[in-house]
Nucleic acid binder design. Structure first.
Length: 828
RNA sequence: GGCCCGGUGGCGGAAUUGGUAGACGCGCUUGACUCAAAAUCAAGUUCCCGCAAGGGAGUGUGGGUUCAAGUCCCACCCGGGCUACCA
């Protein structure tokens, strides 16, 4: 065995051998239990960044650990390869997005292989290839058949920079999630998926996801935004047309209904013109025009002073007969509830601000009897008792919510209503590099789905990527015109492509049957491998990808394509990789190139370091000194093995009774096996796993330092320690351990060995340290035999000279004994 | 504003879930080896007083429960994330 550690040499060698022998390929059939370990697949942006390295290393260690623990592990990789950057790069460099994407995939594949990841490359999935997107299109058609995909004209989010619409989930602070450009509203006819049909079950089933962090579940619950309240219909008493009209409102505060003093409709409210008097028409029109012009950002700003104009018409409150005016104001949102709000300035802060500004009347209807407020300076929004509320006076407001709504139901002007914030998922994109939406528009037959046997609808090649202001796909001369599948007459193709999140919401299912050309996947295969046992990825997908995937899973289950209803059993959201306290980014210039690390230190060092300093869920601060430290440690491990190689006998059995120092080392090995196994099983705490590697290595070094000549017993103990060390380290330092394994004369890959087992009796020190406290403060420590009972420990503690000294002249009030650990003497 | 995390040495972070606070590492200090450096090895490193033995304080702040609190309870302060005129 070479004295010095040459990672680059070892790593290349083993990567080649593993690939040639398909060591990490996974058969579908096995008598072992299955385990599906999955990293969120990357967008092929060009090069791996450290976030990828962290993500994939974590999953890889999990996959290897499970494999050594007797599972048939599925650990695949693929490419989320449709999307705008490819198109932008194409526009910039005049290349074709496909070429750009394929080249990036090739480069990143090389990098992934350099990292020594244990993927089954035969199951690789690439979303931009026709053999994949054919099935994305097919799945769209199943959703269409089920009524879960529909087209409608709506105000949608438009990013001018990207030249496309966006889903609600892709608008962050009123800006585009990808380019930060301010998002505008546009009226367009677009394709939506009915995720709102699943709002309740998506929320309810969060409870089943015990393997998910509460943070992600809370974010999803907030996004779904369930609220319970009532709808009340207010009759309009003076509609200009003279017709009978009513304005329905949604409220979570039916208990405040006697305090209504005005009503607000959104500027985009459908019936607004019919509710405006001719006197007020001009002012209202102008207000609405202004609202349209205003960007989302301006409108959303909470700092902004509320504005509005009266419509001139009035409603009657069916509860008390009071008449109140109608206003329009942009603090009412057209898309939520009914688009109209009943305003109770005394008990809602927004209504309060508005009423103050426009001098609208206020009426207190809820009061805290102990500390009544007149609501002159602020709205009272806490609980209380009803006043000025007719028959409901004196009722607690929590009870009144129900009672008042019930009255409206009985009298026919209201209903109980559960409302969700979640909106349908807009999947149309006015872009080229995506899966074409498989529908055509016939002059006679209208919208027609493309027949399944005509899939895939291929992306045209004859496009001009340099066009500005429209999707490149519209420049194709061959794509647009087609034949109606029903009447055979002229039809035009849908020119929009699907949101890439549609592609990524089912890719993990395709891994179960990646090469199937007849179906998206075989039902028995998908049911066998799914749900994913462990999913690992960034928290940035807490809502987007993870919510869409849950929805698609449930929808496909309802289409009969699979039998499970949650895609990811356990979810680990890894923290960000930071450098100097802030997120690595090109603009800050604090990135670290993985290639350089591989070149200078090797992949094993990179893997070890990225796991070492923080638990996976927390942010990780990259430091050059830390990398150096890990490299030194691997050198130290290598040296330990190489200098002792001649004394290691892979077949040696441990004698039954051992010398004291040998017994101690054996115990440390057992303690290490137990500790490392538990740390991995307990939320994958790799940082403490690695500190335990170090402790074990330190212990073996200490042991060696005390030995000059090794007898047979020593050699077998050393062999035991080192062989276990490299097995324990093999999921992390994958190449080094494989090399050592073979250099020491072992057969087969170390990665297919069984994980070491520990003996509970040996996984602890041979004696205990008894801690002796006086009044809860540590005063002495005594080495004691493990078998001692409570009384014996007590007298042992009291016999300590130091304790005697400290207790003389004092009364011992009581003594607490914690078996095998501690004695606390309480004195006065 | 709402919700969710988190606050422990110079730094990253440990602490079997109420039982030795600071594991392991980085950094630093000293020493060995070396002509020298690197590497390696050895010793030390929470803070304060002390040459030392030793003593005292100590897990954001204030209170509480307990023989015993980083851990549990109450109130507050600070940092981060998500979300936000959602009626």
């Amino acid at each position: 065995m070479k004295e010095a550690y040459f990672p680059q040499e070892i790593e290349k060698k083993w990567q080649k051998i593993w690939e040639e022998n398909k060591v990490f390929n996974t058969p579908d059939e096995s008598d072992k239990p299955k385990y599906f370990a999955l990293s969120m697949f990357p967008y092929p942006s060009g090069k791996l960044h450290m976030g990828h390295v962290r993500n994939y290393t974590i999953t890889d260690v999990i996959a290897r650990f499970k494999k050594m623990n007797g599972y048939n592990v599925l650990h695949p990789m693929g490419w989320d390869s449709f999307g705008l950057p490819a198109e932008n790069a194409a526009m910039k460099h005049g290349a074709d997005p496909e070429k750009w994407t394929v080249e990036n995939i090739a480069y990143m594949t090389k990098q992934l292989k350099m990292l020594g990841l244990s993927y089954d490359w035969d199951r690789e999935v690439t979303t931009c290839k026709p053999d994949y997107y054919k099935w994305t299109q097919w799945l769209f058609l199943q959703l269409y058949k089920k009524g879960l995909a529909y087209k409608k004209e709506a105000a949608v989010n438009w990013c001018d920079e990207c030249g496309t619409v966006l889903a609600n989930e892709q608008v962050i602070d009123g800006k585009c999630w990808r380019c930060d450009h301010i998002v505008e509203k546009k009226y367009l006819s677009q394709w939506f998926l009915k995720i709102t049909d699943y709002a309740e079950v998506l929320l309810e089933d969060l409870e089943k996801l015990t393997g998910w962090g509460d943070n992600v579940k809370t974010m999803q619950a907030n996004w779904i935004g369930k609220s319970q309240g009532a709808i009340f219909k207010f009759p309009v008493i003076d509609a200009p047309s003279g017709e009978k009209m009513e304005v329905p409102v949604y409220t979570t505060r039916p208990d405040t209904v006697y305090g209504i003093t005005y009503l607000v409709v959104a500027p985009e409210y459908a019936d607004i013109e019919k509710l405006t008097t001719s006197t007020n028409k001009d002012a209202v029109e102008q207000y609405r025009a202004n609202a349209r012009k205003m960007s989302e950002i301006e409108r959303l700003s909470t700092e902004r002073v509320k504005t509005g104009v009266p419509l001139g018409t009035h409603c009657k409150n069916p509860f008390n007969g009071e008449i109140f005016p109608l206003w329009t104001a942009d603090y009412a949102l057209a898309e939520y509830g009914t688009g109209a709000v009943m305003a109770v300035p005394t008990h809602d802060t927004r209504d309060f601000d508005f009423a103050k500004k426009y001098n609208l009347p206020m009426k207190v209807v809820i009061q805290n009897p102990e500390n009544p407020s007149d609501c002159k300076d602020a709205a009272y929004t806490d609980e209380g008792v009803l006043i000025n509320s007719g028959e409901f006076n004196g009722m607690k407001n929590t009870e009144a919510k129900k009672a008042i709504t019930q009255k409206s139901v009985d009298e026919g002007f209201g209903e109980f209503k559960t409302q969700y914030r979640l909106r349908d998922w807009l999947i149309s994109r006015q872009r080229y590099w995506g899966a074409p939406i498989p529908v055509v528009y016939c002059d006679k037959c209208g919208i027609q789905p493309v027949p399944e046997d005509q899939l895939p609808v291929l992306l045209p090649k004859d496009v001009d990527f340099t066009v500005v202001g429209k999707s490149p796909i519209t420049t194709s001369k061959t794509f647009k015109d087609t034949v109606c599948p029903v009447c055979g007459g002229h039809a035009t193709r849908e020119m929009d492509t699907m949101d890439t999140f549609m592609c990524s919401s089912w890719y993990y299912m395709r891994y179960s049957d990646p090469k199937n050309s007849e179906k998206c996947f075989d039902k028995s295969k998908v049911d066998h491998w799914l749900p994913v046992d462990q999913y690992v990825g960034g928290i940035e997908h807490a809502i987007l990808h993870l919510l869409y995937s849950r929805f698609i899973t449930k929808a496909l289950r309802d289409c009969g394509l699979l039998s499970f209803d949650e895609p990811f059993k356990n979810l680990l959201t890894q923290g960000m990789v930071l450098k100097d306290g802030s997120k690595m980014s090109k603009s800050k210039g604090n990135t670290v190139d993985p290639d350089e690390i591989f070149e200078n230190y090797g992949a094993d060092t990179a893997r070890l370091f990225i796991l070492s300093d923080s638990p996976p869920a927390r942010d990780f601060d990259w430091s050059d000194a830390g990398v150096e430290g890990c490299y030194k440690f691997l050198n130290r491990v290598w040296r330990l093995i190489s200098t002792n190689a001649k004394n290691i006998n892979i077949n040696a059995a441990l004698p039954v009774s051992l010398k004291k120092e040998n017994d101690d080392l054996v115990r440390i090995v057992h303690i290490s096996i137990k500790g490392i196994t538990n740390d991995i099983n307990n939320e994958f705490q790799f940082n403490t796993v690695i500190s335990k590697y170090r402790e074990l290595v330190n212990a073996i070094y200490d042991w060696c330092g005390k030995k000059s000549d090794l007898d047979d017993e020593d050699k077998s103990v050393l062999s035991f320690a080192i062989l276990n060390l490299i097995k324990l380290m093999s999921p992390v330092a994958v190449h080094l351990c494989e090399e050592a394994w073979h250099e020491l004369g072992c057969e087969g890959s170390i990665h297919t060995q069984d994980w070491p087992k520990w003996d509970e009796n040996l996984a602890k020190a041979s004696s205990i340290t008894l801690v002796v406290q006086i009044n809860g403060k540590v005063k002495d420590k005594i080495e004691a035999d493990e078998g001692l009972g409570e009384d014996e420990l007590k007298s042992l503690a009291l016999s300590s000279g130091k304790i005697k000294e400290l207790t003389t002249g004092k009364t011992i009030v009581k003594t607490i004994v914690v078996p095998k650990k501690l004695v606390n003497i309480v004195v006065k």
